Simulated assay, not measured.
Amino acid sequence: MLYINHYTLLSLAIFLASTCAVLSLQLTVGLTGTGHYFLGHFFFGLGFPFLFYSFFRPLRSGKDNCWNWVLARPALKRWLDRGVNATTSFYFSLGMMSLWHLENELWTDQLTRESFTLDVDHFIAGAIGLALAAVAYQALRRRYPGF
């Protein structure tokens, strides 16, 4: 059984708050197709690393790890523990979101355009959101060492 603690719920709450901010702006101002669309990139850059972290953090749950029933060798268990600790860390989530943001701006968005044009404001807003997510994570780590 996976153990969901209050740190996981706090990560999920941060994601939900940023998503609610984007939805409220979309429903009131209308971000899509306007000059204010960069705000969506900012809030998603801020919130999505916390979403991934809240999904993968419960896999670290001590004695109830989901692979314990398979393992018979301690060396393999140590190797899997290190791998799970690396892939369930916040920085792994931040890195995956950064790669997705980079791919989205440099490849997916370009498929809809005749020539290569980088939306600098979207790119910078997403990068600032990701940087702010890292700062928020560090502040939470100082306040709650188990986070």
Results as ranks from 00 to 15, higher is better:
His122Gly: 04
Leu23Cys: 09
Asn85Arg: 11
Leu71Ala: 07
Arg142Lys: 15
Ser93Phe: 05
Asp119Phe: 10
Asn104Pro: 00
Tyr37Asn: 08
Leu99Ile: 11
Ala17His: 00
Ser18Ile: 03
Glu103Arg: 00
Phe15Gln: 00
Leu99Gly: 15
Pro58Phe: 04
Trp100Ile: 04
Gly35Ser: 11
Thr88Glu: 08
Ser98Ile: 03
His36Ser: 12
Val29Arg: 07
Pro145Ala: 12
Tyr53Thr: 12
Tyr91Gly: 05
Ala139Cys: 07
Cys20Asn: 03
Ser93Asn: 05
Glu114Ile: 07
Leu130Cys: 06
Tyr144Ser: 08
Tyr53His: 13
Thr28Cys: 02
Cys66Pro: 04
Ala133Gly: 07
Leu132Thr: 12
Thr34Arg: 02
Ala72Glu: 13
Gly45Phe: 06
Leu27Ala: 10
Ile124Glu: 06
Asp64Val: 10
Gly33Asp: 07
Leu51Tyr: 10
Leu46Tyr: 04
Gly129Cys: 11
Leu39Cys: 06
Phe44Lys: 00
Cys20Trp: 06
Val29Ser: 05
Ser115Tyr: 09
Trp107Gly: 02
Arg82Gln: 10
Leu23Asp: 05
Leu51Met: 13
Trp100Arg: 00
Asn65Ala: 14
Glu103Tyr: 10
Tyr3Glu: 14
Phe116Cys: 07
Glu105Ala: 10
Asp64Pro: 00
Gly30Met: 01
Leu2Asp: 01
Pro58Asn: 06
Leu94Thr: 11
Tyr3Cys: 13
Ile128Gln: 00
Arg60Trp: 02
Ala75His: 05
Ala72Leu: 07
Ser89Trp: 05
Phe123Tyr: 12
Phe147Trp: 15
Phe90Val: 14
Leu16Thr: 15
Pro58Lys: 03
Ala13Trp: 07
Thr112Leu: 05
Ala72Asp: 10
Asn104Ile: 02
Val70Ser: 12
Arg82Trp: 12
His6Gln: 14
Ala17Glu: 00
Met97Arg: 00
Asp119Ile: 01
Phe42Ser: 05
Arg57Ala: 15
Asp109Gly: 00
His41Arg: 02
Arg141Cys: 14
Ala21Phe: 09
Leu10Arg: 05
Val120Arg: 14
Leu140Asn: 12
Val120Thr: 15
Gln138Trp: 11
Thr117Glu: 09
Tyr53Ile: 00
Tyr7His: 14
Arg143Trp: 11
Pro58Cys: 09
Ala86Asp: 09
His101Leu: 12
Arg141Ser: 15
Gly30Trp: 02
Gln138Met: 08
Gly95Asn: 03
Asp81Ala: 10
Phe116Ile: 13
Leu51Asn: 01
Gly40Glu: 12
Ile124Arg: 04
Ile14Thr: 07
Leu9Ala: 14
Ala86Lys: 09
Asn85Met: 11
Leu130Asn: 03
Phe56Cys: 08
Trp107Cys: 05
Ala17Ser: 12
Phe92Pro: 01
Gly45Ile: 08
Phe42Gly: 06
Ala13Arg: 05
Leu51Cys: 07
Leu16Val: 12
Leu102Asn: 03
Asn104Phe: 03
Asp121His: 06
His122Asp: 15
Ala13Glu: 03
Leu106Val: 12
Gly126Ser: 09
Ala136Trp: 06
Arg78Ala: 15
Leu46Glu: 02
Phe123Ala: 10
Ile124Cys: 08
Thr117Phe: 11
